[in-house]
Design a protein around this nucleic acid. Structure first.
Lengths: 356, 356
DNA sequence: AATCATTTTGGGAATGTTCCCAAAAATTTG
DNA sequence: CAAATTTTTGGGAACATTCCCAAAATGATT
């Protein structure tokens, strides 16, 4: 009995062993209702040229059979998967999850699914991720690259194939494609300016790796703020590190052990700044009197700890929303790709107990 | 010239408008090398029956053309996508991201890709997620359901289609499929026992919604601990809420306003407990002398705040790893699905300043 | 040199869907 | 009531790949 409902292959298999896990297809529905697959297809996709009664019968049978359209077949045919890939280097801090949620909201609205890849700050994994996304034929890509990534050829492949890529947060100047960044330079400039205005003069900077543009921009903001107030730059106070927290611990201790230790620290991000606060407290120094600390990105934790962390806030989910919007703009045009755009979002300083 | 390289459709299109974004196929490679698609396919998949020279030529041409296999076509044919879906209710707290990373590591090892869906604690979104994953033909599913989910029919569809589902963290007793949970009952029992041993007698419990099994188990642990020490249960001290933090704020204030306020609070999770600490501090009460607080799940923030939060730790990424492992076990068997398993992981109490 | 065995290659079906075009059925018009 | 028109349905190609089976090429053995 049941065999009547099943499409070719399953029908044959039924004779030899019990059919398991057969996913109903439009052919199965067509067979049971004595219709052609064309008609069933039309009924299911809402095409107007189907008799009302027929459509009803089809929909009913589809529900009864747990029919679920096979997106693979459709994508193969249409050459569009309605899927966007997102590659992020980590998602344990609040930052990337929040960006992803922002992007996902905008993309879901437009009928796109999202595949999230976690490169885990590994170049190799990132390359593997792009291969996998290429194989699964994503329509577009949102990327924040790893700190190890210095060669961007794996992204150029997308360019060549006409698959739009939008970079966010960690962007790549030398590559085409739309970009979403925040005003890292301005944020850093204001943060360091604030420290100077509270009377600090020996301001250290725990910088991020040179491979990430944010790091370079924040470093420039730091340098220009010092110059602006005629404070000499001491290279001993600038340490670039790889963002792993145990290293942060070591470097903060190193700075505090200097013959002329810093009276303030501007950290590349909030996790680093929080680690610094721990070290400073554990050494019995007062915050901010002995050492003031500023972070970057306003992690929710920063408001919870004692003292609260002064930090440069950025509109995190807006980064995701903007990146998604730029990608959709690229995807919408089916003839010529519109020109790539770069969006720079504002940052603002949030002053808390770690500086005043 | 270029047209010679292109497969059928593209070839025709070339005559009318410029071909853009054509993704090279094995047919394109076959054409340029004067081979059949069968031979090219064999060369690329590493089938032994290909002459060494031919294989080399094919691989070289594939690289030159940026060839990337079309996983859609393969999946359509083989009826396996090598993709696993993960549905989580949120990922702003550290918990779910960490579970996902654990699961992803295990799954990637086994050659599976991962599609992450964010149901955002919305039943509707969760149902939509399952539909999308069904349409994209995931081979298996890892789920932690929303707090709104009371009807589980959308998961039963997977069962009927023979697609294995593994529930983690928020599990569903009444459904088949493997499950990964932690010892919520024992953790809660020990947490409340600890409060009692530090001399507390009026212990409140901010519980989670009844729809989530963890909430029920932790509540039972709380109740049994009180009974064990012959402390009367006061229903006024048990408040079940929907896990939104502004509500937590209101309920903690409500509890502290009672004629006989509690001298301790056991919270369903760490974010709730941290919110409680804020309220208690803002009212000028001493922690833990006036009110002690215990959370659940050892959020990294809990170690950073003042005072440190006593909490029940659970092996978060192990939850993900175990869930992935159970799913792989189901996926490995291509004949009969092995019996579903349930793994319960240990919890352990971490004592910090919020209780001693 | 002819036969046999082995290696290498090619042709075609199948996967599930959409869409075009033609055929059939139903409806309207003269 | 036949012709013309509209609505509804069916058949088949196409998407990119794998795999089976047959055909061709090569190598080994007599």
């Amino acid at each position: 009995m049941r065999t009547l409902f099943l499409s070719g292959k399953a029908f044959i298999q039924e004779k030899y062993y019990i059919v398991k896990n057969h996913q109903a297809t439009i052919v199965d529905i067509a067979r049971t209702l004595n219709l052609s697959k064309s008609t069933v297809s039309r009924a299911l996709t809402g095409h107007p040229n189907v008799k009302a009664g027929t459509r009803e019968k089809v929909l009913e049978m589809a529900a009864q059979m747990d029919y679920q359209r096979n997106q693979l077949a459709i994508s193969l045919l249409t050459n569009r998967t309605q899927t966007v890939g997102i590659i992020v280097p980590e998602f344990l801090s609040f930052f990337f999850p929040k960006v992803i949620i922002g992007a996902q909201n905008v993309l879901a609205e437009a009928g796109y699914n999202v595949v999230i890849c976690h490169s885990n700050e590994s170049y190799e994994t990132e390359v593997a991720n792009t291969k996998a996304l290429l194989a699964s034929r994503v329509d577009g890509l949102l990327v924040s690259h790893t700190k190890e990534t210095r060669n961007f050829d794996h992204f150029r492949v997308f360019e060549r194939k006409g698959i739009p890529v939008v970079f966010f947060n960690r962007i790549v100047e030398e590559l085409g494609g739309s970009k979403v960044a925040v005003d890292d330079y301005g944020g850093a400039f204001r943060a360091v300016g604030h420290l100077i205005q509270t009377g600090k003069r020996r301001i250290a900077h725990l910088a991020g790796p040179d491979s990430i543009q944010n790091s370079r921009n924040r470093l420039n903001g730091y340098l220009d703020a010092l110059r602006r107030y005629d404070i000499p730059v001491d290279p001993a106070l600038i340490i670039s590190y790889d963002l792993t927290l145990d290293k942060a611990n070591i470097y903060v201790n190193h700075l505090l052990n200097l013959p002329q230790p810093p009276d303030a620290l501007f950290a590349i991000n909030d996790p680093t700044a929080i680690e610094a606060l721990k070290v400073i407290k554990s050494r019995g120094l007062r915050i901010p009197q002995d050492v003031a600390v500023v972070g970057f990105s306003d992690d929710p934790v920063s408001a919870l700890i004692e003292p609260g962390l002064t930090t440069v806030a950025q509109p995190v989910d807006e980064i995701g929303r903007q990146a998604a919007a730029l990608l959709l703009k690229q995807l919408a045009a089916d003839d010529e790709r519109p020109e790539a755009e770069t969006v720079v979002l504002e940052t603002r300083l949030i002053v808390r107990g770690s500086t005043v």
